[in-house]
Design a binder for these strands. Structure first.
Length: 943
RNA sequence: GCCGGAGUGGCGGAAUUGGCAGACGCGCCGGAUUCAAAAUCCGGUGAGGGCAACCUCAUGUGGGUUCGAGUCCCACCUCCGGUACCA
């Protein structure tokens, strides 16, 4: 019995494709090109989960479809294989991460091949390959060799950096330092999360409430020399570049918000003695607003210079460099202890809202530049050191945070913006009892009263600029990118630190010469942390750690790059994966770039995509790539959740409790309204009824039940393994099901019965063509070398049209629905013209390639169906001789009439009004209005 | 709090963008085939009412625009995701 047997067919055709090189991509495209890219996976030990094939199937369909349309397609795959899990595995087992990584990549490769994706496997790369990370290191050196020229908004070689005379005179060392301060890759002291117990530095995500996520040990923030990338210089370019991209608006918005551009002004507040103030003001009037405020001024950044008259105090961040000098002796202890406490809090904790605001007075005051009055300076951790100038002017009347702080510490509130007269809380606002953050008319602002916010902003900034006390300024939330990790399993930095004769670093850095790349990872005895905030590479043998070059001794940089590094540019390497001389051949780059379609999860909406764009722009500025943006079109696949779960509740006595009466206590445990604990019972849908909006127990309709699908997770036990699905249903079924579940971008719950549904469809396709009663594999007797009749021809061409359009629009679910209709239609037919079957198989091939190869062969195809060209539909065949349209009366369908589809408006109306059923309905009524839409409907408005 | 996205049958989802709501699939019901079952094939399936032809009600809720609203506007509710003092 020749039943559809996926496991046999699928392995056969996968071997065929590999043997024949069916999907090998030429070096250069001939004719139109399409670069279709997946976000490459991290090869975890768990193998693929069903979320991977979702995006991969979508791109595979697009890639196969594009090939059939005659485009040259680049559709590659690779592995983002540096990362923490392999290192943790190494710490536990002593096995080199490379070994485990290799094993995982092999497993992923097996799984990916099992799904029949049309990747060009000759181009596969892993970020951990030496031949790959050699170029990651090389790009780092490009960043190191680049400075950002603000004037031209462009990265340029460091050799072109203009050196001021004074620096030049100070000698080589000063020039070196001057350059180092301007490179896109630079070292700086950054605060890291150091956990002494674990003996390691942690990422922000690994720290919760000031404690390590693993173990719950205290984490301290300590400054450590770190590599940073000056992504902030590219903020404006990264923002502007978004305009031209075909990305989901939501993702663009996320990136915009992340970059967080704001405009306002920097303002200097005088902090010296009163006697020194006049000369200071005078000098400012003549010299203008300086780059450096000097020691007698405190500089703030504000987006609301119009509220300067309402600034009643100032706040500096605990890490602000002036904290010490601003602190009065009698406040010294309080300030010191406050700052110490703040240093223990993680960024996350400090910025965790609703926690109330705390602060401490420094004892000193500053002069408000517009009122001339003295206002107190506080230290508080609600001001962030890393944003703006790390200091603010506080305007409690018009800033919610300042207001909250002012109320706590009883600081004055002076309203300077009058809300619109119809504002419900206007009185409270004017009395300084309520905070108002929106725009209005200035009050209590001598010289500006009555003017509107925007106007006041402008003129206050103008006046400050004229007096040398302020200047318009732009700020970004985006921070420079902390680029080094104290980890083993990452790319080593290709940087050498010069040592003096005593073996101490001189501070001079030197890039590893190009010919010496890659800098490989050393072999370590063990990978365990060693209790100092120093990277594991510092434990390497001396012959790795120390280098002699041109008679000088150097110590290697021992930090490694973050996982982002390798994923920042992999899309370029696919184009020229084995080039040993260059990152990428410029000719190939020009032909293939940019990526035409990039599909992946939304979790990379900000970081990966922003980092990648940043590197790409630097490479662009330095002439290594030809296009300013890497990813033309981006599509985010939605998450696949586990099967829907029904959850009921029971009290301690075991009696069912309605979900409506179940809440959560402070610790998140489920309890009844009276506070007693409830237990959770998992239910089957056979036990349930639906009443209105909710599910209830069949046995007792008073008892409500929760119904929800959850994110797949090991702990919940709802993870679906692709291996199992392929084994049970076949790869084509898995592919098809994931595409049929719903729109690609939507979040959707898994349903095993649905997989059975699409398998059912493939079985029907098989039986439509194959004689399943015969002993050997042969065509069904219904397949004939005959012409389609009119309705078959229409069905065929409508299907070609729908599948073409839907595949173009990536509406795979509706394309599949249409192919199901086709199959249902032709299964019923006694005669199935072979030509129609062949055309249909071509349409289905991108979706279910294995099955289609098999049936294609059976229908007489000689080559792979993947090499066929995509069919065209014939408009003439689509036209139906007559269509049924509704006749509405007052917008409600009453009667249906049959007309030819090209009937004119007037004759439609004539036919409708001539219909006796319509006439009967119109009796005793007055026809007020008649609407006819050709090919659609007739609507009669009557009274 | 803020920013996104979404609410349509028992379930997943369709709906040429303002024109017959529920395509397609699952599930369920009935029939055929079978000694029986599986598989397969055929038919039915939003709710309520009626013997029936038919009627009424239905796209989270309430209003509005329109000949006509799942689709547009206003107000609100719920869920999901992201984000968090950026001055």
């Amino acid at each position: 019995m020749p039943r559809y047997n996926p496991s046999e067919i699928e392995t056969f055709w996968q071997a065929y494709w590999e043997r024949e090189g069916t999907f090998a991509t030429p070096e250069l495209p001939h004719g139109p090109k399409r670069y279709v890219l997946d976000m490459f996976p991290y090869p975890s030990g768990d193998g693929l989960h069903v979320g991977h094939p979702e995006g991969y199937t979508a791109t595979d369909i697009v890639a196969r479809y594009a090939r059939m349309r005659g485009e040259t397609v680049l559709h590659p795959m690779g592995f983002d294989a540096f990362g923490l899990p392999a290192e943790e595995h190494a710490i536990k087992t002593g096995e080199h991460p490379r070994v485990q990584t290799k094993r995982n990549i092999d497993n992923f490769t097996r799984q990916l091949k099992m799904l029949g994706f049309s990747y060009d496997w000759d181009r596969v790369i892993s970020t951990t390959d030496e031949s790959y990370f050699r170029w990651t290191q090389w790009i780092f050196l490009v960043l190191y060799d680049t400075w950002f020229d603000r004037e031209s908004q462009k990265g340029r070689p460091i050799a072109e950096l203009p050196i001021p005379k004074s620096v030049e005179l100070a000698g080589e060392e000063a020039i070196g330092k001057y350059r180092d301060e301007r490179r896109l890759a630079y070292q700086a002291d950054a605060l890291v999360n150091w956990c002494p117990e674990l003996g390691t530095v942690l990422a922000n995500e690994e720290v919760q409430d000031g404690k390590s996520e693993r173990g719950g040990y205290p984490v301290k923030r300590i400054p450590l020399r770190q590599w940073m990338l000056r992504i902030t210089d590219y903020a404006e370019r990264l923002l502007e570049g978004l305009d031209e991209l075909n990305w989901p608006v939501g993702i663009k918005k996320l990136q915009q918000d992340w970059i967080g551009r704001s405009t306002g002004a920097e303002v200097d507040f005088f902090i010296g003695d009163d006697s020194a103030r006049e000369p200071w003001l005078e000098s400012r009037r003549t010299t203008g607003f300086p780059d450096d405020p000097g020691h007698d001024a405190l500089r703030v950044y504000t987006t609301r210079p119009d509220t300067l008259f309402g600034a009643t105090y100032m706040v500096v961040a605990p890490e602000h460099p002036l904290v010490k000098s601003l602190t009065h002796p009698e406040q010294a202890d309080a300030v010191a202890s406050y700052c110490e406490k703040a240093s223990f809090k993680s960024d996350r904790e400090r910025t965790d809202g609703d926690r109330g605001k705390s602060g401490v007075f420094t004892g000193s005051t500053a002069v408000n530049p517009v009122t001339g009055g003295r206002i107190p300076i506080w230290v508080a951790d609600y001001v962030l050191a890393g944003y703006g100038t790390g200091a603010i002017m506080a305007v409690p009347a018009h800033d919610a945070r300042d207001f909250e702080f002012a109320v706590s510490y009883d600081l004055p509130v002076i309203p300077v913006v009058d809300p619109p007269s119809d504002h419900p809380k206007r009185e409270g606002i004017l009395a300084g009892k309520v905070c108002f953050e929106a725009k209005g008319a200035a009050i209590n602002s001598p010289g500006y009263d009555g003017q509107q916010t925007d106007e006041v902003k402008r003129s206050v900034t103008q006046t400050l600029t004229k007096d040398g006390l302020g200047n318009g300024a732009v700020n970004y939330k985006l921070r420079d990118w902390l680029f080094s990790r104290q980890r083993f399993w990452g790319e080593p930095f290709p940087i050498l630190h010069e040592l003096d004769s005593l073996g101490q670093p001189t501070g001079v850095k030197r890039p590893v010469p190009d010919g010496d790349l890659p800098v490989r990872l050393p072999d370590l005895e063990d990978y365990k942390p060693h209790g100092r905030p120093e990277p594991p590479l510092a434990k390497a043998d001396d012959d790795w750690l120390y280098v002699e070059l041109d008679g000088k001794r150097y110590r290697r940089e021992t930090n490694t790059m973050p996982q982002w590094a390798g994923s920042c540019w992999y899309y370029l390497r696919y184009i020229d994966p084995t080039n040993e001389k260059q990152l990428i051949d410029p000719e190939k780059e020009k032909e293939w770039m940019p990526v035409d379609l990039y599909v992946g999860g939304a979790e990379h909406a900000v970081l990966h995509l922003l980092y990648s764009r940043f590197w790409h722009k630097v490479l662009y500025d330095r002439g290594h790539v030809s296009c300013p943006e890497p990813f033309n079109r981006l599509v985010n696949q939605g998450m696949i959740l586990g099967e829907v779960e029904y959850t009921g509740y029971r009290d301690e006595a075991g009696n069912p409790v309605s979900a409506a009466d179940v809440g959560k206590d402070e610790e998140g445990n489920r309890v009844t309204a009276s506070g007693s604990a409830v237990s959770v019972v998992s239910l089957q849908d056979a036990d349930l009824d639906k009443v209105g909006e909710t599910f209830v127990l069949k046995s007792n309709s008073e008892i409500r039940v929760d119904s929800r699908a959850f994110k797949m997770s090991k702990s919940r036990g709802n993870v679906v393994n692709p291996d199992d699905i392929v084994q049970q249903y076949g790869a084509d079924s898995l592919r098809l099901y994931e595409m049929f579940m719903g729109p690609l971008e939507a979040t959707k719950p898994w349903a095993m019965t649905g997989v059975g549904g699409v398998r059912n469809f493939l079985d029907r396709v098989w039986r439509m063509i194959v004689d399943d009663k015969a002993d050997e594999l042969r065509l069904s007797a219904a397949i004939m070398e005959e012409q389609c009749d009119e309705s078959q021809l229409r069905m065929l061409h409508q299907t070609i049209k729908k599948v073409t359009e839907d595949t173009d629009a990536m509406s795979f679910n509706t394309a599949i629905a249409r192919m199901m209709e086709f199959t249902n239609f032709f299964t019923r037919a006694k005669k199935r013209p072979a030509e129609a079957m062949r055309t249909f198989i071509v349409l289905l091939a991108p979706y279910a390639p294995h099955l289609c190869e098999e049936l294609w062969r059976l229908l007489g195809g000689k080559n792979s169906v993947s090499l066929e060209s995509w069919p065209q539909w014939d408009e003439a065949a689509l036209i139906e001789s007559s269509i049924e349209i509704p006749v509405q009366i007052n917008g409600k369908v009453k009667v249906k009439i049959s007309i030819s589809p090209d009937t004119s408006r007037d004759s439609m109306m004539e036919i409708a009004l001539g219909d006796e059923r319509v006439q009967a309905l119109l009796e005793d009524k007055t026809l007020v209005k008649q609407i006819a839409v050709p090919g659609r409907l007739v609507n009669l408005v009557v009274k």
